[in-house]
Design a protein around this nucleic acid. Structure first.
Lengths: 118, 118
DNA sequence: GTACTGTTTCGACAGTCATCGAACTGTCAG
DNA sequence: CTGACAGTTCGATGACTGTCGAAACAGTAC
């Protein structure tokens, strides 16, 4: 397992995480909360209990999506007492942009195999 | 169906299109071909016959992925004679970046509903 | 310690997706 | 016109994903 393969897996996780509109909304809620800074749960964080109500889905489903986003490295979770607080990972948006930039194939040779139509 | 909803669907298509590593590779191949400019199929385009061999998947599957990418507006197809040539849509990478920027929730109120943990 | 509350894990189910083979469409060469 | 070929569409299939309810777990309050 090379470092490149590991990065590829991480890119895969990021795009897969963002492929669900529910998870994109979670990211947006967190990004908005960070921007606005008016979250009532303390700091730039959002407590898990918000998402269930706001997204209209059950707590187990929220937990599942959170795990996906955490695996992708887009979120940071912090448990304080009874509640878990989530916030956007510092590098989240940068990582996404990097993954998008990687699509341009900057790290690949430009060679295309010949084909019959040449 | 408002214009906003339509844009949301388009963003959904873009992220879903990029959620498959096979399709990301297609985009990368096209982006690389455009950069390198040494494609033997003519211009900055890549003929469809390349992908099947390069990705190790059947022609029907390639066609399916191409349709997904076309629907997302990331590709442009041009049929000339017997062959179909694909290239990255001019706005493809810009559209992706825009979709990512949209995650920051620039178009949403920062209001978070109160929760029990406040 | 016991009761309570927020969160996660587990098992199940429906819906979606990637892939394939077969059949079809459209184009070119003879 | 006919045969050959590139690509698409169709139908089927296996794998994966999102969602839910129930149960288990982890803290807090009394």
């Amino acid at each position: 397992m090379t470092r490149l393969a590991e990065e590829t897996i991480q890119v895969d996780r990021i795009f897969k995480a963002l492929a669900s509109s529910t998870r994109r909304e979670i990211v947006t809620i967190l990004a908005t909360a960070s921007d606005a800074g008016d979250v009532r749960c303390g700091g730039n964080e959002v407590c898990a209990c918000v998402f269930s109500e706001r997204l209209g889905i059950g707590a187990p489903t929220v937990s599942h999506h959170m795990k996906t986003l955490l695996d992708a490295g887009l979120l940071v979770a912090e448990k304080r007492g009874l509640w878990v607080y989530y916030r956007l990972a510092p590098r989240a948006l940068a990582d996404i942009s990097e993954a998008v930039a990687g699509l341009s194939g900057s790290d690949r040779p430009g060679e295309i195999p010949g084909c019959a139509c040449g």
